[in-house]
């Protein structure tokens, strides 16, 4: 008995620095935000929450954030599936391609954002190509489709890499067996490949989703009139100096994120 207590004491002392750091740097700030967001002077303690959620702007901002996050996640999944179907057969340069998709991950988001703004601009190269085809430029920057493209560009590698590493490890013989039995390509895709890649897709897309939902630097400079939650929190607190309102928005954002995470994990468990 004595030995067990001693052992657990050692375990605890080993765990404590990490837990203490997380506590001080994460849970305590979170606590401060919750405290700041409560209005002790107003008639209602949740005054700032109610004010934000009941204003048309509040719901608009939340809707916009969700739209961007879901839209970009969906696009990332589609793009990843397409790429995986092609790269699975190991065409020329597939290794180069695997390095290439690391670029949006390792290069600071702001640089990527600047590049995207320049590239998709009215006189950027993309528009020059488009102009050659349809004879007039299209406005991409500062529009919702534009933001969706930017988000997908930035965050699809997460979905792609996780799913790809899983598909790579799959047993090729299952697929071959299906083909031998006489399944056509679509059937192989529908009944064999997708179900097998599903856990990877879910695990990868959840990360893409989390990042899209919390994206800050990109909408800050590429958003134009569209300001998702993260940017609204920043402007409200750091620029307008209304820290209590900003804190309330931050708590709402964290709660929505946790809600989505939990539902996602549930779906993932069911998928297994």
């Amino acid at each position: 008995m004595k030995k067990i207590t001693k052992q657990s004491l050692v375990t605890f002392s080993l765990l404590s620095p990490g837990l203490l750091a997380i506590g001080c740097l994460f849970f305590y700030p979170l606590f401060i935000i919750i405290k700041n967001s409560l209005a002790f002077e107003e008639e209602h303690i949740f005054y700032h929450y109610i004010k934000f959620l009941s204003s048309s702007n509040g719901l608009y901002v939340i809707g916009l954030t969700c739209l961007l996050a879901f839209g970009a996640t969906f696009l990332s999944i589609c793009l990843s599936i397409l790429l995986i179907l092609i790269l699975r057969r190991k065409p020329i340069g597939h290794n180069f391609f695997k390095t290439l998709v690391l670029a949006p991950i390792t290069i600071p988001g702001l640089i990527c954002a600047l590049g995207l703004l320049l590239f998709w601009d009215k006189n950027g190269w993309m528009n020059l190509i488009i102009q050659g085809i349809i004879n007039r430029p299209i406005q991409v920057n500062y529009t919702i489709p534009g933001l969706l493209i930017f988000y997908t560009w930035l965050f699809f590698p997460y979905t792609f890499l996780i799913t790809f590493s899983q598909v790579e490890s799959l047993d090729k013989s299952i697929e071959e067996a299906a083909e031998v039995v006489g399944a056509n390509r679509m059937q192989v895709l529908r009944y064999i490949l997708l179900p097998l890649a599903k856990p990877g897709l879910l695990a990868g897309s959840i990360i893409t989703f989390m990042l899209c939902f919390g994206a800050f630097s990109v909408p800050l400079i590429c958003g134009g009139d569209y300001r998702p939650l993260s940017v609204s929190i920043y402007t409200t607190s750091a620029i307008y100096n209304r820290w209590d309102e900003g804190s309330a928005m931050a708590v709402i954002m964290a709660l929505i994120q946790i809600f989505f995470l939990i539902s996602y994990i549930r779906i993932m468990k069911r998928a297994r």
Partner: peptide
Amino acid sequence: KPLASEPPILFNQFKK
């Protein structure tokens, strides 16, 4: 529209 969010963007609009 959209209005320039900072001066460089206004400049960029002038350029284009």
